[in-house]
Design a protein around this nucleic acid. Structure first.
Lengths: 249, 249
DNA sequence: AAAATTTGTCTAGTGATATAGACAACTATA
DNA sequence: TATAGTTGTCTATATCACTAGACAAATTTT
């Protein structure tokens, strides 16, 4: 299927403009490793012919990718691939942000965006095994690798048990290190549910995405080794930059 | 975040039309359980106001969902939700199509779409641990639950070892049963890599999707208990109808 | 019966998307 | 230097997407 040639056709009057569909396919093609770093894209006329559209339509697609930092166009020479392959984010029993991306990036860290205390919604309460309305701390964070945003998480913690976890996160930039301050040396992932959808406005802003991008959404519960829930989190990954690798749970 | 209200704004001049963005959000809202089955959607004027668009734009979104069988509109009364929640497809060490959906659907089966023998591409050869160019059998299948397509898979098997597996699949409609004929009573999932993208033309046709829909893509290797690869597969799930639940591996 | 609410249809106008063609500007090669 | 190949810019036109307003048709409530 996606292996070698793959006709990759384009849908008209679909609600998704042709230039965006073409941009998506080029992006996917790059992520799949069809182009080496710094390799030249086929010339605009060739792409236009392949997709059966006007050259200007291809130019719109390329222009979006240039603005997104994926391609660089040089007049008279060609259009060249800048970005590397997708990061492979491992998900398993001991899913850790930093450890998981080791070897794929030279630098990675977590930025605390906002924090607040609020009563637990039905969904959060269920995830943490609390009564609805119990006070919980909500932390919104962004994961960055080599300066590029690769995840955006909203996590909830029982407020009574984790007083000051927001400060710990801001200070350490690590979930694992923050838990250590509360005497939790190990934690496991109890459940993960995955879905995908178009990025909303907040995703676009926080993850520096172009409108129309797709995000992978993971809803997870982390527990202590004896099975008590300590964190309920919804994490969004930009599908164009990240794939999820399921490892042994 | 996605819990209670969620402003869920809309992006203009994004390459994705407003009506499609709104259709996606309504679909997601239904899948998230915001509406009971047969419940009425808010009236068109209210939706138009919420999203900050013209009523006609909302009508385009609703019209697409009506055609997709998700909503039913009745003049003078309102617009009503037809479809149920998303199926939750479990992925773990022993991922089986039929067993996994038990309890969520009354009926499910696999349809063999096409089969062919071909030399293994680089990607397939790596997955199966074969030399590039080795003959492999390619089977394309569709998974259906209660009459609705819920997955579309392309799977490769070593041709020398699995002579006649296409016939076995067509006959039994089950991967597990087909493997039994080759003396394989148990198999495990070695690895799974997940991504998401817009559905291509083939996905739209085989999964009966509307253009612009999103598919979750799982690339997996299945192995015998002693670790020998027997199947390399790429499966696509319509994100609007299926979520993936990661269970213990 | 009347009024209110809701979906269905129509017309008209505006802006974004896509097509078509031509030519300029720049680079590499013969 | 000349030629071929490539990206950049311009004009013009057609179609799709969205807005705006009005009214019809069906249903429910008063």
């Amino acid at each position: 299927m996606a292996g070698q040639q793959m006709a990759s056709s384009i849908e008209r009057r679909s609600g998704v403009s042709l230039w965006r569909q073409i941009a998506d396919q080029i992006l996917h093609s790059i992520a799949a490793g069809d182009f080496a770093e710094n390799a030249a894209l086929p010339p605009e006329v060739a792409l236009a012919e392949r997709y059966g559209v006007n050259r200007h339509t291809v130019r719109s697609a390329i222009s979006a990718l240039v603005q997104d930092g994926v391609l660089r166009a040089e007049q008279g020479r060609g259009t060249f691939v800048l970005s590397r392959k997708r990061l492979s984010y491992p998900i398993g029993a001991r899913t850790r942000f930093s450890t998981g991306l080791q070897g794929q990036t030279s630098e990675r860290h977590i930025v605390l965006l906002t924090s607040a205390t609020e009563p637990a919604s039905q969904r959060v309460a269920e995830g943490l095994g609390l009564a609805r309305g119990t006070e919980v701390i909500r932390l919104e964070t962004r994961g960055e690798a080599d300066g590029r945003p690769v995840s955006r998480a909203v996590a909830w913690y029982e407020a009574g048990r984790f007083v000051g976890i927001d400060a710990a996160m801001a200070e350490t930039g690590s979930v694992t290190a923050s838990f250590k301050r509360f005497g939790i040396d190990d934690y496991l992932r109890q459940s993960t549910v995955l879905s995908a959808r178009h990025a909303d406005a907040a995703d676009l802003a926080d993850l520096n995405l172009q409108p129309g991008a797709i995000v992978l959404v993971a809803v997870a519960v982390n527990v202590t080794p004896d099975g008590r829930p300590i964190q309920f989190a919804e994490t969004r990954f930009p599908a164009e930059r990240v794939e999820l690798k399921l490892s042994a749970l």
